[in-house]
């Protein structure tokens, strides 16, 4: 019975250097704009710490159980009487788990209420609605008019922000791994999630609940900014759309209105007031297109307009591949100018 547990024994006696480098690789491997182990938020930090403690405990317990099994298999320990062997069961099977689990459970209970606590009154509230397969985002600063945007979230650093979440069609789940846990968006219900970013930077959020054909293509960039910078940004977003500055964009606006885009999209300051799709007032200033799918630039805009259903299968928006290339380019130029 030696050979097949040799892997076990090797794991219980790792080379020191190997272990150290493995840990280094592991830690480096945890970074990323979407990693819950590279926290940039209070909740994410708390949960990542919890994970590392539990992971350490898991390794210790697994190695201990494997070692016990191994020594039992090898007959390393003198053959036990049934009475002695029963202490294995009482000690290892019953008492040890009970004690450890009680401690873990109490710790879990202790850290749960703060994670569920609402943001203090007067905090910024952002209503986010998950729709197949994009995000409607409405900033609701205390005492000011709300501002509706889409597919991108910007936050002031260091301040608790309350997200008010719902969904008009199917269940989605709002998740920014770098900042904290996820919360489902359920038709007919309103859920809430408080996040507090602890450092500035650009991160990525995704839909975590399977929501249909293009579930995989429902993401959004998250930008955490200094407070003043954030206020300035929001003020700019509040402003209506800029008028087109060059003839190409001007032509693009005409084509935009002529081809019925306004039935679904709003561009504040124009007659486009559609509510079905994302607000495009400042679409040119966003980092991505199609809810986190394409990096936003002129070419990507053309691609999105011409091959919408290829970029995002099943999407509600029809593609406009039948338009002449020049017209597509003009619309793209117009949208790009909406900063």
């Amino acid at each position: 019975m030696v050979h097949f547990l040799s892997a076990t024994s090797a794991r219980s006696r790792p080379h020191r250097a190997g272990a150290a480098s493995a840990v280094a690789v592991l830690l480096a491997g945890c970074s990323g704009p979407q990693s819950s182990l590279d926290p940039a938020g209070a909740g994410a930090r708390e949960i990542a710490d919890l994970f590392w403690w539990m992971a350490g405990g898991t390794v210790v317990v697994w190695v201990a159980v494997a070692w016990l099994t191994y020594s039992a298999v090898r007959g390393r320990v003198a053959e036990q009487t049934a009475r002695q062997a029963r202490y294995y069961i009482i000690g290892g099977g019953a008492l040890f788990p009970t004690v450890v689990l009680t401690a873990l459970l109490l710790h879990g209970f202790r850290i749960l209420p703060p994670l569920l606590a609402p943001a203090p009154p007067g905090s910024l509230r952002i209503a986010v609605s998950g729709e197949q397969w994009w995000w409607r985002v409405q900033y609701q600063p205390d005492g000011e008019e709300p501002v509706e945007l889409a597919n991108e979230i910007r936050l002031p650093v260091g301040e608790p922000v309350e997200f008010i979440l719902d969904a008009p069609d199917v269940i989605h789940s709002f998740w920014i791994p770098s900042l904290g846990g996820k919360m489902d968006m359920i038709p007919g219900r309103t859920t809430r999630l408080t996040l507090q970013a602890t450092r500035t930077g650009t991160f990525r959020g995704v839909c975590a609940e399977y929501c249909g054909e293009s579930h995989a293509l429902m993401a959004f960039p998250v930008v955490v900014m200094a407070k003043a910078e954030f206020s300035a940004w929001l003020a700019a977003q509040r402003a209506p759309a800029q008028a087109p500055a060059d003839p190409l964009a001007e032509r693009g606006r005409a084509a935009f209105l002529q081809n019925g885009c306004a039935a679904c999209h709003a561009v504040r300051g124009t007659e486009a007031r559609g509510r079905i799709g994302p607000d495009l007032t400042h679409v040119g200033g966003r980092m991505t297109l199609g809810a986190g799918v394409l990096t936003n630039n002129r070419a990507a805009l053309v691609r999105w307009l011409a091959h919408t259903d290829r970029v995002k299968p099943g999407v509600l928006m029809p593609h406009f591949g039948m338009l002449p290339a020049a017209e597509l380019d003009a619309v793209a130029a117009y949208l790009e100018s909406l900063r």
Binding site: M1, V65, A72, V73, G75, V77, Q80, Y88, I89, G93
Partner: peptide, 20 residues
């Protein structure tokens, strides 16, 4: 997890008490 732990340790104890 407690009963699950118990059954795994029953197997370990049985192995320890016998000759495999």
């Amino acid at each position: 997890a407690i009963p699950t732990g118990v059954q795994i340790f029953c197997f370990i104890a049985t192995i320890a008490a016998g000759k495999l």
